[in-house]
Simulated assay, not measured.
Amino acid sequence: MAGSSKKDGQLKIKGNTIQITSLDKILYPKMDINKQAYLQYLIEINRLMLPFLKNRCLTVKRYPHGMFDDFFYQKNCPDYAPSFVETIQHDDIRYILCNDLSTLVWMGNQLALEFHIPFNKVTSVCPTEIVFDLDPPSREHFSLAVKAAIQIKTILDRLELHSFVKTSGNKGLQIYIPLDENQFTYDDTRVFTKFIADYLVDQSPDSFTIERMKNKRGAKCYIDFLQHAEGKTIIAPYSLRGNEDALVATPIEWEEVDQQLTPDMFTMDAVLERIENQDCPFSRMDSVRKKQPFGRILTGLLNQKK
């Protein structure tokens, strides 16, 4: 990679030296992916992944022995972090800001396999997007997430809202509606997300649910609108997940969302091949933020409540 070199367990990236260890450690046995392959993935994907991590309080899920063993969530920046790692204090937590490749690779070496981010940047308390998390009970029920996504897209198109979709990297789909920054609060967006979720359940009660308790959902797809809230997080675009297939939370085109779509199409290797042949669908998000008629829609929903 231009601007970097590896020698004797060290990787130099733009003047920063990163200690690299245990490159032959197997992280995903089923897929035969070791630590070296994972770090190479982060290096190759960084130009697409970093814009979504930048200036957001980061929570990572670390797997010290690979995905087949114990894991833990980490919010606080450890004391041993190198000086180039940016942090920000929020309440009693010193969060990492993953704003550059050096930090991304260092965290990869710490075996952070999952990167979870909030819906707002550190510069604002307002979300930069609305996200619906469509969570079926298993991968075998993935078609329910597809059904929900298509129905939501139909509604959003009628409302003239631009939307984007990605796989969760596990068993569901996630729909993004970018917003003009610093314009709408989480209370504002909750009015909208609850309306859409209630409408879907009302239209297809046998397929969808907003029941929070998993043991009460049955075989229905959970339309998670409550996760979109201050302090909550979602898996970052292009982050791997801690499942045996090394699946990636992957932005896709709406045209790909059909009954032929399956989560296992988006392994780490498949995503690397994918980005060589097409642009990131999420790259168009910023160009539509100011065009969204969300204010008008919100006003209409609030007037209905009066």
Rank of each mutant, 00 (worst) to 15 (best):
L261K: 04
D279T: 13
E255A: 14
M67S: 10
I96T: 04
T87P: 11
K25L: 15
V201M: 12
I275C: 12
S163K: 07
I252C: 03
R241W: 02
D224Y: 02
G15E: 03
K7A: 06
I175Q: 02
I155Y: 15
W106P: 00
E129N: 13
Y41D: 01
K291M: 08
L39Q: 07
S287Q: 14
D224A: 04
E181T: 07
E114I: 01
T128E: 13
K220R: 15
H141W: 03
T299Y: 14
F294L: 07
E253N: 13
F184R: 01
T299V: 13
K306Y: 14
K153E: 13
A112G: 05
V165C: 08
I235E: 00
E211L: 06
P178G: 10
A2F: 11
I43R: 08
S83F: 07
K232H: 11
Q89A: 10
F84I: 06
S287V: 08
I93H: 04
A112N: 05
L39H: 09
G66L: 05
K147D: 15
T299P: 01
G295N: 11
I117P: 00
K61H: 08
V105R: 01
D100R: 06
H90V: 13
H65C: 11
M107I: 06
S168W: 00
P118N: 07
N277W: 10
F192T: 06
L200H: 09
H162E: 14
D206T: 13
V105W: 01
R241S: 04
K7M: 08
G218L: 01
I234Y: 04
I45N: 00
I223S: 05
P51M: 08
K232L: 03
R139S: 13
L53C: 07
V131P: 00
K306I: 14
K75P: 05
L156P: 11
E230V: 11
V60F: 00
T267C: 09
I152R: 02
C126M: 14
N277C: 10
V248C: 04
G108R: 00
Q174M: 11
I196Q: 02
D91K: 14
A145P: 04
K25E: 15
Y38W: 08
I93G: 04
P118L: 05
H90A: 06
Y41F: 11
F195A: 12
H116C: 01
Y73Q: 04
D91V: 10
Y199K: 12
I117K: 00
L50G: 08
A246E: 05
F72A: 09
Y63E: 03
K216E: 12
I93C: 07
Q259A: 08
I196R: 02
N215F: 11
L104S: 02
Q278L: 12
G66R: 03
S207T: 09
